[in-house]
Design a protein around this nucleic acid. Structure first.
Length: 418
DNA sequence: GCCAACGTTGGC
DNA sequence: GCCAACGTTGGC
């Protein structure tokens, strides 16, 4: 990760809260050289994902990677950010969504809050115990109650009325540190890098999650629990351990769609079935099919203005993280890398149909994409002691995507003199 | 690690 | 303001 001088270029950014500052930095190294990063600096923020304070991270600078910027927006304002709907997932701090102060109850951030409530709740509201309204008057908790002549020391719910499915399990907080994703599975919980899978009909509770954990999972959950017990921040958890925050948001969508029958999160107001042309409706059908299908891991379909169907790789860990597939209403598609379209002559296009009309065709293309890596381009020139950002140079006919065993396309290679 | 005890808080 | 009971913690 490149850094500029820590004291330079900061501007006040009150949208994140009083005292917050923001600056933009162009990357000067790595394969994504020339890309712009946004950094924020401000007061400690409590992060519900990590159940700890984000502070003193990276020399007091909280990097606005796709991950932490979501933290910032979620838990300083607890409001909806339309940037969640943006294919790049990077809050700009300027758009309508970033300035919104009202929860819509439908977007990803709202649904995440809803999910937290679901995971935290102590009663399912459906079992016999939850439906029972009368205290037994004989259990130890009832006997403790003043109305039964007790001393009110225990202060607990009648044992017969305690939820059978959501009964208290010690490691509550670890749920906050677990992240819900969906990929090849119906429902997946991620505890750090370990996956726990559930059928879509499984009632998710702290009990059955706990039962699925192996001993090391349980140990880790207990450790997190222990660290958070008195609100002690556990260091750089956000950046070093929970690498799946970004993925979480996507997965919550799946989980909520399946459990709460929320069918749309992204704003599709201008593209509702019936309001557009037939071709737009067909594209919408493909979108719905893709969303109800199993896509290669953490590829996700969204609809944006145009109308245009976009497939994005949501995992920052993926080498395809800057790659998008764009499908127009005629089902013709193009692939872009770091917003640059592949040349129409790219060999990738020879291997797949010119139009992507079915889920199978889309999935095949995505699987095919994962066999490529991004061309490294030309090596940066020496810019030591030079303040201007380095811009990655490529051949004008750069392939952008090359086979994994190559690091550079033939055009860039030729330009380099190999 | 378990649990009695109790401070706290949301709902009425 | 009252009450039910949640969530935390100190003691064992």
């Amino acid at each position: 990760m490149s850094r500029s001088h820590p004291d330079e270029g900061w501007v006040d950014w009150p949208v994140l809260g009083e005292g917050w500052k923001r600056k933009e930095v162009v990357r000067r190294s790595g394969s994504s050289i020339g890309q712009k990063d946004v950094y924020y600096m401000g007061s400690p923020i409590f992060c519900v994902f990590c159940w700890s304070y984000l502070e003193e991270i990276d020399e007091s600078v909280i990097m606005c990677s796709k991950n932490t910027s979501i933290h910032i927006h979620e838990y300083t304002n607890l409001t909806v950010c339309a940037c969640f709907c943006h294919p790049q997932w990077i809050p700009c701090g300027q758009c309508v969504g970033c300035h919104n102060t009202v929860n819509c109850g439908q977007c990803v951030s709202c649904c995440f809050l809803c999910l937290l409530l679901i995971l935290k709740r102590r009663s399912c509201g459906e079992c016999n115990a939850c439906l029972c309204r009368k205290d037994c008057g004989t259990c130890d908790f009832c006997v403790d109650k003043p109305k039964f002549g007790g001393s009110n020391k225990k202060r607990q719910k009648c044992r017969l009325r305690q939820c059978q499915r959501q009964a208290m399990v010690k490691p509550h907080l670890f749920l906050m540190n677990s992240l819900v994703v969906s990929g090849h599975f119906d429902i997946v919980l991620v505890l750090n890098t370990s996956l726990l899978t559930f059928d879509r009909d499984t009632y998710i509770s702290s009990t059955n999650i706990w039962e699925k954990l192996n001993s090391s999972h349980q140990k880790e959950a207990t450790r997190i629990n222990s660290n958070t017990r008195r609100g002690i921040p556990h260091g750089k958890c956000c950046l070093s351990e929970n690498l799946y925050i970004m993925d979480t948001v996507v997965c919550i969508y799946f989980l909520l769609c399946r459990s709460l029958q929320i069918t749309q999160i992204f704003s599709l107001a201008d593209n509702q079935a019936g309001s557009g042309t037939d071709s737009e409706n067909q594209l919408m059908k493909l979108l719905h099919s893709l969303r109800s299908s199993v896509l290669p891991i953490l590829w996700y379909a969204i609809m944006v203005d145009g109308p245009q169907l976009q497939l994005i790789q949501c995992s920052k860990q993926s080498i395809m993280t800057d790659t998008m597939v764009l499908i127009d209403p005629g089902f013709y598609y193009k692939v872009t890398v770091q917003k640059q379209p592949l040349l129409p002559t790219h060999s990738l296009y020879d291997k797949y149909p010119g139009r992507l009309t079915t889920v199978t065709e889309v999935v095949n293309l995505l699987l095919g994409l994962e066999k490529y890596v991004v061309c490294q381009g030309l090596p940066p020139r020496e810019h030591l002691f030079h303040k201007e950002p380095l811009i990655l140079e490529r051949a004008s006919t750069c392939d952008f995507l090359v086979k994994r065993k190559l690091s550079m396309c033939t055009s860039c290679r030729a330009l380099r003199g190999f």
